[in-house]
Write a protein that binds this DNA or RNA. Structure first.
Length: 493
RNA sequence: GGCAUCGUGGCCGAGUGGCUAGGCGCAGCUCUGCAAAAGCUUGUACAGCGGUUCGAAUCCGCUCGAUGCCUCCA
């Protein structure tokens, strides 16, 4: 039997503002769409957090036995740099600045994006479609919206008529905005453009002669509006209504609001049952911004080449750090916080190593089944990874007590514990055991075992000068010796 | 200016109308030749001011502060 039949998953739906029992449209199957990156520069860490949250969600849904089609797009066209006047595409602008073909920019940063995600141990999505690969689908949707009367064409561009749409639909229901308020608060300096009202947004933009990214359309050469690709691609691969749509909080308005409007206008019904929004990452309590220098790239964390952190941190440690916070909370990254996570991560991994070699007995002091359900309860409560991790540390405590001979565990329970802990740590949280222990390279392991033996001989002879020299020099090399009841083990940092 | 979210102990970060979150750090103890590791024990909280309640950090109001959105943005 699939796990989802016995576990009740609840998710926080941004659309209703409530935690709701999750029920897919087709039993056993889930369609999930997440807004991916615009590939005009290196992915920054905040981006990674959002995608990591949905990677974890994807992993847990799969763990529960669902068949998930996870679509995460690559935006390689369509996002405007400024509003009306030059109408220049972000990608095109970067291409001009770097003297590259637009697709060269796209390729470079797509590769960077994939590299970083791989380091973070992301699962690849089921489909990773690009905006430029779906121009035809986007044009089709524009036609439908025009046919239904919710858009107008002017000077080779097509705009979505928000006011008209709002007469029969609720524009703003996701972000809790009222069109009247938006109109009242419109800034004065709205530049000259063809829009009937500032709230309207472009479905198709006419390309000026110098604009290098352009496609033919019924309205002339141009390029698609910046919200349309997600509607086109989610509809194509997941259908007109699908289960989960995710993205960063900052996309709630206007991006996701516009997606809803486009879908409702063209298809006549709401596109998504559960809207999930991942929250922002701040750096030292402030928002990340290139302009202020309060910014860090994932690669700079892994290499340690940055001015913000005292040392390098591995992708797994960063992942563990992010999993220690709930995905809907703002998370603040700082040196102290990463340092603390690194220690905790090491403790967890050490315990998983210890578990392998644990002696078993005739009874268990640790109620594994009860604990196991607590782990599921945590994840079922809107993917509460911090609580899951707290539960994992409960297990760590027992593992260490058993190792010290203060508690016992049966063989059967040990196997169950191993299975559950591996499932949650590696499959669901997506952590990797990069801190090698004795299972690392056998040569290193052999050498350290030899040194441990020599040290123990020295200790037996009360030659503490020699034994301390071995221990201290190994420590200096990053190899920590751990004396226990059952002998000495080591870990490499 | 408008909308939204949030404000927890030395740091990070869960949660909740009355019952230990957890990690890191600090202190004491056990173990150790000494340490480290591990275990045990302990302290320091719920932004401020009012209100609802038998009882609120948890609900309501106000104030202050932070973050996000309102223009592309995970």
């Amino acid at each position: 039997m699939q796990l989802y039949k016995s576990q009740t998953l609840k998710v926080y739906n941004s659309l209703t503002g409530k935690k709701e029992v999750f029920k897919p449209i087709n039993e056993g199957h889930i369609g999930m769409y997440v807004c991916g990156p615009t590939v005009y520069s290196n992915v920054h860490l905040g981006n990674c957090r959002t995608f990591m949250s949905f990677d974890m969600i994807f992993r847990y849904l799969k763990h529960l036995g669902y068949k998930v089609r996870y679509v995460r797009n690559i935006t390689d066209a369509g996002h405007l740099v400024d509003d009306a006047e030059d109408g220049e595409d972000k990608i095109a602008k970067k291409a001009r600045l770097e003297q590259l073909e637009p697709m060269e920019v796209v390729q470079r940063y797509t590769v960077d994006f994939h590299n970083i995600l791989e380091k973070f141990n992301f699962l690849p999505p089921s489909i990773e479609p690009t905006a430029t690969g779906h121009i035809i689908e986007q044009i089709e949707i524009i036609k439908e919206i025009l046919d239904k009367g919710y858009a107008y064409e002017i000077n080779g561009s097509v705009y979505f008529d928000v006011k008209k749409f709002n007469e029969s639909h609720d524009y703003g229901k996701l972000s809790g905005r009222k069109l009247e308020d938006m109109i009242a608060n419109t800034r004065e300096l709205a530049a000259q453009d063809d829009k009937r009202s500032p709230q309207d947004f472009a479905l198709w933009k006419k390309a000026e002669p110098q604009h290098i990214m352009r496609w033919p359309s019924p309205w002339g050469d141009g390029f698609p509006g910046w919200h349309l690709e997600c509607t086109a691609m989610s509809t194509k691969y997941l259908g007109e209504t699908f289960d989960i749509h995710g993205g960063g909080m900052d996309l709630k308005f206007p991006h996701h609001e516009c997606e809803i409007a486009q879908s409702e206008a063209s298809h006549g019904h709401s596109p998504v049952n559960y809207w999930l929004h991942a929250n922002m990452l701040t750096l030292n309590g402030k928002k990340m911004a290139k302009s202020t220098g309060n910014n860090i790239l994932p690669g700079e964390i892994f290499s340690g080449e940055n001015k913000i952190l005292s040392k390098a941190f591995s992708p797994s440690v960063v992942r563990f750090f992010m999993m220690q916070a709930h995905y809907t909370s703002i998370l603040d990254l700082s040196n102290d916080a990463l340092l603390a996570s690194e220690k905790g991560y090491g403790k967890l991994m050490d315990a998983i190593e210890t578990l392998k070699g644990l002696d078993t007995g005739t009874s268990s002091d640790f109620q594994i089944l009860e604990w196991k359900q607590q782990c599921y309860d945590a994840m079922n409560d809107d993917f509460n990874t911090p609580i899951l991790i707290a539960n994992l540390f409960e297990a760590v405590k027992h593992i260490n007590l058993i190792k010290e001979g203060k508690e016992t565990i049966t063989n059967e329970d040990k196997e169950l514990l191993t299975q559950v802990i591996n499932a949650f740590v590696f499959d669901v949280l997506g952590l990797e055991n990069k801190s090698m222990g004795a299972n690392d390279s056998s040569k290193l392991s052999g050498v350290v075992e030899l040194l441990i033996e020599l040290r123990n001989d020295a200790r037996a002879n009360k030659d503490f000068a020699t034994s301390d020299k071995i221990r201290d020099q190994l420590t200096a090399l990053g190899i920590q010796l751990k004396d226990g009841k059952e002998g000495t083990t080591f870990s490499v940092s």
